[in-house]
Simulated scan of single mutants.
Amino acid sequence: MSLDQLCHHFDAGRCRSCSWLGLPYGVQLVDKQRQVAALVEAPWEPAVASAQLGFRNKAKMVVSGSVDDPTLGILNPAGGGTDLRDCPLHTAGIRAALPVLADFVRTAALTPYDVPGRRGELKHLIVTESPDGELMVRCVLRSQEPVARIRKHLPALRAALPALVVASVNIQPEHKAILEGDHEIVLTEQETLRMRVAGLDLHLRPQSFFQTNTAMAAELYQRARAWTADLAPASVWDLYSGVGGFALSLARAGVAVTGIEVSREAVASANLTAADSGLADVRFEVGDATAYALGSGAPPDLVVVNPPRRGIGPELSGWLESSGVEHVLYSSCNAVSLAKDLAAMPSLRPVRGQLLDMFPNTGHYEVLALLRRR
């Protein structure tokens, strides 16, 4: 397939975010697997392929241009907008919603933020689609000045976009490369988007994180259950638990699970899902993963870690090494930091590993590794 059939923006040089799009997809997978295997010695299973297009459940669109002619996409080198409403990475529901939201920018008179001029209000539109086709739309604003107009025109937007179930505004007043601020105002009665995946019915609040590739998220959770089933752990810690995908997957098997996550929004989402699911032996707490581990008593039978790109770091690696924990399930988006963490805990070695192509057309990925104490 030619590049223009995949993405005419890439072919024209307007957007190079998908830096590997010029490579055949099979070559992408082989190259990623080779990179990971060179960094981490493990019994690697075949890579799990993703759909190459239409997989991305979340759009983070920079709003630029003018009220009458807004662009939704990215900024070009000069600070102007490049419109990517038809980006083929996004799900069909998001692609259909973005033109409607561009009309909403005009109707509600939401002045796009001018980065070079440091003026305007609307910085980003963040759109998430659930597996059921429902939408969450967030407007990232410089101030609360446009909120009344957004409220006024929201009924018309919902009529034009029936899939919209959660709408909010986020206030980010600083002129910095920060996507969103701390203050969120939910404008709809429904406050969470339901992400039904891998047998789970997860609640997603506006500021909660969820993997952008729903199919690969499902594969992750399913493997977590399958890989640990024979271990029959009586107790589990899920550190960096997010909205609870791993923890809730394991709790469904009757395991007592504690999830630790620094994001209050994510913890609220996870606890709501646990309550809805009737899972009494799973609980989520707001806290730092390393501080929780170092401050706790006896370790659990299994520890799950799903850290950011920097990895778990020397303190938590050192604790895991000396803790006596028999098994660790490590989900990583960066094999470089994974390798560094593994070097700090030589008693825990990978007995199973798999690459899941969470981010096709780029050099990024997710890997899952099961570690066993030797």
Rank of each mutant, 00 (worst) to 15 (best):
S2M: 07
D4W: 10
D4I: 09
D4F: 09
L6D: 11
F10S: 01
Q28I: 03
Q33Y: 03
L39Y: 00
A47G: 13
A47S: 14
A47C: 13
V48L: 15
S50M: 15
A51E: 14
Q52Y: 06
F55T: 02
K58D: 09
K60N: 12
L72C: 10
G79A: 11
G81D: 01
D83E: 03
L84K: 00
L89K: 01
G93V: 04
V100H: 07
F104G: 00
V105D: 00
R106P: 07
A109H: 12
L110W: 06
G120Y: 10
E121Y: 09
H124M: 10
S130G: 08
L135Q: 14
L141W: 01
H153Y: 11
L154T: 03
L157Q: 11
A160D: 15
L164F: 04
Q172E: 14
K176V: 15
A177Q: 14
E180N: 06
I185L: 15
V186C: 05
E191A: 08
H203C: 15
F209I: 08
M216A: 03
L220E: 05
R225Q: 13
A226P: 04
A232L: 09
A234C: 04
L239Q: 03
L239P: 03
G242P: 03
V243R: 01
L248D: 03
L250D: 00
A251M: 14
A253R: 14
V255I: 15
A256E: 12
E261N: 12
D288N: 15
T290C: 15
S296M: 14
V305Q: 01
P308R: 05
R309D: 13
E326R: 05
S331P: 01
C333S: 09
A344K: 09
A344H: 13
P346Y: 10
L355C: 04
L356Y: 07
M358K: 02
H364M: 15
L371A: 00
